[in-house]
Amino acid sequence: MAKYWWKILTTIILLYVIVVGILIKIPYLPKLKESIRNLFYHVPMWYVMLFCFLMSVIYSIVYLRKNKLKYDIISNEFVIVGLWFGMLGMLTGMEWAYIQWGAPWSNDPKQVGAALTLLIYLAYTVLRNSLPDADKKARLAAVYNIFSFALLIPLVYIIPSHLASLHPGSDNKPFEALKTQHHLLRYVSLPAMLGWIMLGLWIFDLRIRIKKIEQPEIFINE
């Protein structure tokens, strides 16, 4: 039971987010209208992606310092989970844009930046899977991963905030988006952020346990 408490908590938080997120009476927003509720579903996808990529780059650095294959595998699993959620974020974003902007793709700086980020991380998985030698693979993947994270920050954050973007919140400074939110939205958007990140961690936990069964020797010799 002690092992599962946070998974139960994840379920409860996400149930709250789904039910209350849809039913809560939100203030009238002239542009976004009801689609502001995407704040509880589409936006957290990107939070999960950013969280996973951040964890992954931390484990890449740990790998380069300690040279233990364990950390390389952890880092790689985080990238894979992050990529899944990033693609969901992209897909839901395009669905939203189709209604709000009239077209799923309109080369908005935010869209292009996110797409480039996903492509960079897809290239990471290709690079990592194309090398047969485990140590070389791990080392190259770790170095590439650090570079991709260094690119991610300007691509999803700095560049779109300097160009004219139609995307809501893109003209905000860091953390401004949260502060300027209507307090009603915050009751759901904060738990949503936490809940979806925890769901990502849950899936990561399952993936890493599969790896532990597949390659026990890497995880045992500590």
């Binding site: 039913l23 009476k25 939100i26 203030p27 009238y28 927003l29 009801e34 300027t180 209507h182």
Partner: peptide, 26 residues
């Protein structure tokens, strides 16, 4: 807080069908 019209958006709840969607999502 952003200056927004305090009048609540109610279209979503007008005919009660939204509860069905919540049920589906759950």
């Amino acid at each position: 807080n952003v200056a927004i019209n305090q009048e609540n958006a109610t279209i979503l709840h007008q005919n009660g069908q939204i509860y069905l969607v919540v049920l589906v999502l759950v």
